[in-house]
């Protein structure tokens, strides 16, 4: 077995102020294999975005700080790099796309410049070469009139087109890892499917590994090779997508799977999980899911459950799981 492309070990990212400490990411472990898709699911506030921003070392400072852990890209710890070395990784070895393609693009710069500047920065191209290459990149993500699009501004494009442009930008330097933080949440359903198809096609063509963050287990089922379920800043379950879907071991994962709306069946209703996510500023002792867990026992509240590998490559953070 070769080493994974990316290994995240015991990552802790906290927001520290004089009066409080928000443990947004609190001891996260997972790895991403080369050319594979890792899906991360979890409710709002579970720390998905902060995990991905930590990998990019773009946690909003000065309050947000990576206080512990390792992030190994090709065995190299990104947390040990200088900021200047890190700028050589961003956009070059790791590309990132965000949820809101309207606000994620600069409203007053042309699409061609916004794509091209990645190439002038990392590939040493001059402006003319970069613009020419940007046209090619836009064609690769399915723009028929790419020659015009490079001269247009973001507001002239539809939401789906903007996200395609974002993908072209993030993929410009053929990164080994693409992080997509809810790339389709802001789009309507048919466009969502197109954008996901595009990402899968690009992955197959270029061998780029993808971290795909989403609320939507359906998207994970369709796209992911491996998956991580996050809750309260922690990984509560991780494994291959097949084994997790086949045999979810954590009560939270099971509840999530039950809440997928299943069409053409009797239970067509979306069963949301009762209760709310505990505040990251004030986690309870012991298991963080205890207040919402139907199986909770007194022992669950005494000690934080460890993440245990119960099946081969399939781990769970629940005292009672066997």
């Amino acid at each position: 077995m070769s080493t994974p492309l990316l290994e995240v070990r015991n990552l802790k990212t906290h927001f520290i102020s004089r009066t409080s400490r928000v443990r947004a990411v609190d001891g996260v472990d997972f790895s991403v294999e080369r050319g594979k898709v890792l899906g991360i699911v979890g409710e709002s506030g579970s720390g998905k975005s902060m995990t991905s921003l930590s990998i990019m070392r773009l946690v909003p400072g000065p309050q947000g700080q990576i206080v512990d852990g390792e992030i190994l890209l090709d065995g190299k710890n990104l947390l040990k790099l200088t900021e200047r070395e890190m700028t050589n990784i961003r956009g070059n070895q790791i590309g990132m796309i965000f949820q809101e393609p309207m606000t994620a693009l600069n409203p007053v710069l042309k699409i061609g410049e916004q794509i091209g500047e990645v190439l002038t920065r990392h590939r040493g191209m001059n402006k003319a070469e970069a613009k020419k290459h940007a046209v090619e990149l836009l064609k690769n993500v399915g723009f028929p009139r790419a020659e015009q699009i490079v001269n247009e501004y973001p507001h002239q494009l539809s939401g789906g087109m903007r996200q395609r442009a974002m993908i072209a930008m993030a993929m410009a330097c053929q990164p080994t890892l693409l992080i997509a933080d809810e790339p389709t949440t802001a789009l309507d359903v048919t466009i969502q499917a197109q954008v996901l198809d595009l990402m899968r096609e690009l992955k197959n063509r270029t061998g780029t590994a993808i971290i795909l963050i989403t609320h939507d287990l359906g998207v994970i089922a369709e796209m992911a090779d491996d998956m991580v379920v996050m809750y309260g800043g922690q990984v509560v379950e991780s494994g291959s997508a097949d084994s997790v879907f086949e045999e979810p071991l954590h009560p939270y994962t099971r509840a999530l799977l039950e809440s997928i709306p299943v069409i053409d069946e009797e239970r067509e209703r979306l069963t949301a999980i009762p209760g709310t996510v505990p505040s990251a500023a004030n986690f309870p002792e012991g298991c963080r899911f205890a207040d919402r867990c139907s199986l909770v026992e007194s022992s669950c509240r005494e000690k934080m459950p460890e993440l245990r590998e119960l099946r081969k490559g399939h781990s769970v953070r629940c005292t009672l799981a066997v």
Partner: peptide, 10 residues
């Protein structure tokens, strides 16, 4: 947000 994007581009 687009400033974050610019940073993410290196």
């Amino acid at each position: 947000d687009f400033v974050r994007t610019a940073k993410a581009k290196g």
